[in-house]
Design a protein around this nucleic acid. Sequence first.
RNA 1: GGUUGGGUGGCCGAGUGGUUUAAGGCACCGGUCUUGAAAACCGGCGUGGCGGAAACGUCACCGGGGGUUCGAAUCCCUCCCCAACCGCCA
Length: 428
Amino acid sequence: MLDKRFILENLKAVQENCDRRGVKVDVARFVDLESQRRKLQTEVEELSRQANLVSKSIGQAKDDAERNARKDEGRRLREKKEEIEEQMQRLAAEAAVIHSAMPNMTHPEAPVGGEDASKELRHGRVDVRPFGFPVQDHVALAEQHDLIDFEGGARVAGHGFYFLKNEAAILELALQQYAVDFLVREGFTPMVTPDLARGDVLKGIGFIPRGPETQIYSIENHDLNLVATAEITLGGLYAGQVIEAEKLPIKLCGISHCFRTEAGAAGRASRGLYRVHQFTKVEMFAFTLPDQSEDMHNYLRDLECEIFDGLGIPYRVLDIATGDLGGPAYRKFDLEAWMPGRGTAGEYGEVTSASNCTDYQSRRLDIRYKVKGEKGTQLVHTLNGTAVAISRALIAVLENYQQADGSILIPEALRKWVGKERIGGNGR
RNA sequence: GGUUGGGUGGCCGAGUGGUUUAAGGCACCGGUCUUGAAAACCGGCGUGGCGGAAACGUCACCGGGGGUUCGAAUCCCUCCCCAACCGCCA
């Protein structure tokens, strides 16, 4: 959520921001409703003040007649107040709908435009090179080496689910180990998080559970939902808390399963593991002081680069355009890894993203910090970034490390956890 | 799933209809004392909205919502959450 006062004082800038981000919101209408509501609020407060005076005077009434007269007066004031409060609530309800639709403000350097306007910032350490033999996609490779059972997944849970088998199962664990090991050395606190969370936590982070457009699986008869990312639980961890400023920044690394209905996403370039209903992810999350968040954002992006450099996978970094930002993000960087088997001649596919959500999430979740010796509390900034989304990373590993003989090398960095250097060929 | 007890300021915690203007403590801030620090003592100290240049004024807030009343942290209804124990269970 944006700060209401900020919206009132910056109507034009907020409207322009919504337009740039392709969100249809009538900011002027919100300002109008909110101004009216505030006027009524003042009236209500004046009536409350009078009613309080009447209440206090009752003890001093000299007889029953006077006492009763004052009670009548008090009742009259209360009824009038309730009437105005009702109007106020109608205004507030309409304003709240507009308010919650407003996206975060945007970093001034974020490229303006739709998806195609996203700007490439740089490439990874490893170059994309021709293979010199016909490449296979990860589905074919997995079939050849008996690594993934899509049919079995479908039988048990439907399309979009799968069993990882053999080296793929080991690689899932190895990728987690690799990412967590790396992040712990960077000072992140490792956490295995709940895979379910309450509706309020989802909403605070910016997900909409149980709507017609929802991407979230919900549990029947409970206010619980399967999380789409550990961002939800890590952000929710500090909901309603006040953090001492000297403890910031807090850097957390969460391991969770992620569940997404992917409603409406069928039929696109989503073969095999690319777009699935469940996957495992190692997520980075940070709480910072407001003036730390931009540096933290760059840091998270650079860590993502280091992780993929370490795996030896080519990638590019995108500064995501305004029209393609989610609601809470002030700025977002994506890493797209080279997937040689994707499309007709290989394509980049999104593998991580890092967002600076400034105070947009913390305002709704009520996460504040307090500076020792200073009065009051302020909202923290929150950031999140993918360390490794296993399913997509697996695609990149399998496809980039395939060899002319059909075998697949294990990336050097993962060998100590996989315990071998090659799938197929001489290795098996 | 069952039973019981709980939810009050940054934290702990008192408080069963009107000096609650939310006691007291911790933490924090200022001061006295001290070479310095600690301790002790004195004073200050919740959050948010609105008005105001400010001093200040005013309203709201005791898990959420609703109700009773001139007046609710306190009484009633309802929902949520937390803890402990029991049952079941990897």
